[in-house]
């Protein structure tokens, strides 16, 4: 019930309205036969979300990469998809923000939320797909979306948020061509 109420607070209209996620830049390059991406994302949390974070509510940050083969007249088929997931949590004893990479299990702590979000917004060398898995004679595009939600948000009370979708803050899809 507490988690539910927390969700209620976090994603009430005022709480979510000033939160924003924006992909500033993204590019990819072929390194040793693997397409790797470097992205720059700006996360802006609302004050109430920061307050909730400071009171122990964990956030989940996800970067969703999707590679499509470009076709002229037919719908583009999705060739591959990669998702990076992080959790951000504040520890009241250590007074530090811990950023944990769910994919690798690696975690880093930061003294400030700004430092944590800054580190989260600069991600390099994300392996997207092995070049050998893609058709050489075709063009491909990558699209990326970043979204922030509550890591353990109480779905139980989603019915109260049913009429709004601001329980989840996401960026627009950012698309760029995959360099051969």
């Amino acid at each position: 019930m507490a988690a539910f109420a927390c969700a209620l607070v976090l994603f009430s209209p005022n709480a979510a309205a000033d939160g924003r996620v924006e992909i500033r830049s993204a590019e990819s390059q072929l390194v040793d036969g693997v397409h790797q991406a470097s992205v720059r994302v700006q996360y802006q949390l609302s004050s109430r979300v920061e307050e909730a974070l400071a009171n122990g509510i964990a956030l989940q940050i996800a970067l969703d990469f999707e590679i499509y083969r470009t076709r002229r007249f037919l719908p583009d088929p999705r060739e591959a998809a990669v998702s990076l997931t992080y959790t951000l949590r504040y520890n009241t004893v250590t007074e530090r923000y811990t950023l944990r990479n769910i994919n690798t299990g690696q975690q880093i702590s930061f003294a400030t939320i700004f430092a944590a979000l800054n580190a989260l917004g600069r991600i390099d060398a994300v392996p997207l797909v092995d070049a050998s898995l893609l058709r050489e004679d075709a063009d491909h595009t990558v699209r990326l979306r970043a979204q922030v939600s509550i890591a353990d948000y109480p779905l139980s009370l989603k019915y109260l948020l049913f009429w709004r979708d601001d329980w989840r803050v996401a960026s627009n899809w950012y698309t760029w061509p995959l360099v051969r």
């Binding site: 507490a2 109420a5 927390c6 009171n55």
Partner: peptide
């Protein structure tokens, strides 16, 4: 958390 959610809990 409880302190933070005291009002919303009541509302809920």
């Amino acid at each position: 958390r409880l302190v933070l959610l005291r009002g919303p809990l009541k509302s809920t």
